[in-house]
Design a protein around this nucleic acid. Structure first.
Lengths: 181, 181
DNA sequence: GTCTATATAGCGATAGAC
DNA sequence: GTCTATCGCTATATAGAC
């Protein structure tokens, strides 16, 4: 575990990148192997089925969520602002994992849908004490989902629909004001 | 156009239903034909390729969006409340079309992603005059996206993450209060 | 207009050499 | 631990009968 052995991580990286940029349909074993610089046989030595590769992606997400919840817990700005701001950082490792897994979920993977659901529960538990009521909690969570959804759909190109810079600052201020206990 | 000619609409219905309930991967020509009660050959008489079937789905969405924008324009409750409330009505024809197309978009279809983007632009234009500023507009649009995203991921089963009843009333009230000009 | 039968290609997975 | 070769299945699409 300490020293990441070999090409395993590179394969997951390639899988993740393909899911994000080309969609679930295009993330075939062939394509993933090519992108990772190994043969299909080589890939299937590390992950003996496509399902196992997907499981590894889910495990990566779980690990990053653990780290993020810990960071959210000690964030100077408070969990709400932390949560919203990190929801728009497309190149963060966690955000990439979330988008990749959401592609798997929309592709029909039940375990992926459950992983997303569980992640949401944990964030909710962290945020609940810092907002006014249930409606405020719903607002924060749904807003974050909307941010991710747009990141996921845009991803390849197109002009940012997602607010950034000053627009994001104002949005965060508005939400904080509307949900503060 | 007046009298829906034949099995064409039934095929699109089946395609839409499969996209929603089973995901893009499962919506094969075989499965769609079976669900629509025609043979694969029969399906391919009406839509000479899978891409054409997807185009028909996009055309249906475009038609429903036209109707919805018109309805939003004359809604008694105002466009903001109308927009938010219709974002959670899973069995509305428009919502079903949006979810189906979002599955295509996340499956990697560029035209589907563009259709979603265009739809968003039209809603934004309708809502903009009824909210305080850009941050308020972003809030309403992203919240609606979050609602749809959750509807799309849940769809099959699981307990509603999406607020309804009193919870939805309170959420709408909170947003209206926070965004009013 | 709808069917059956078939061609073609791509995917996931296995076998076995190195 | 990684490769090449290949099998079996499924998916899209075509051809032609009815």
């Amino acid at each position: 575990m300490a020293r990441p052995p070999h090409a395993r991580e590179r394969v997951i990286d390639a899988y993740e990148a393909l899911l994000i940029s080309e969609g679930e349909r295009a993330a075939t074993l062939d394509a993933v192997a090519r992108a990772a610089g190994v043969s299909k046989g080589g890939l299937l030595y590390h992950f003996s089925s496509k399902e196992e590769l997907a499981s590894a992606m889910l495990a990566r997400l779980a690990r990053l969520v653990d780290e993020d919840v810990a960071a959210m817990h000690v964030a100077k700005t408070g969990p709400v602002e932390y949560y919203l701001r990190t929801s728009v950082m497309m190149d963060d490792a966690l955000d990439r994992a979330i988008i990749a897994v959401s592609r798997l979920a929309q592709g029909g993977s039940q375990p992926a849908a459950e992983a997303l659901h569980g992640m949401r529960e944990r964030s909710a538990a962290e945020i609940r004490p810092h907002v006014r009521d249930q409606a405020a909690l719903d607002l924060v969570l749904l807003l974050s989902d909307g941010l991710f959804f747009n990141n996921a759909v845009d991803s390849d190109g197109s002009d940012g629909v997602v607010p950034s810079g000053t627009a994001l600052d104002e949005l965060v201020a508005l939400v904080l004001q509307a949900t503060r206990p």
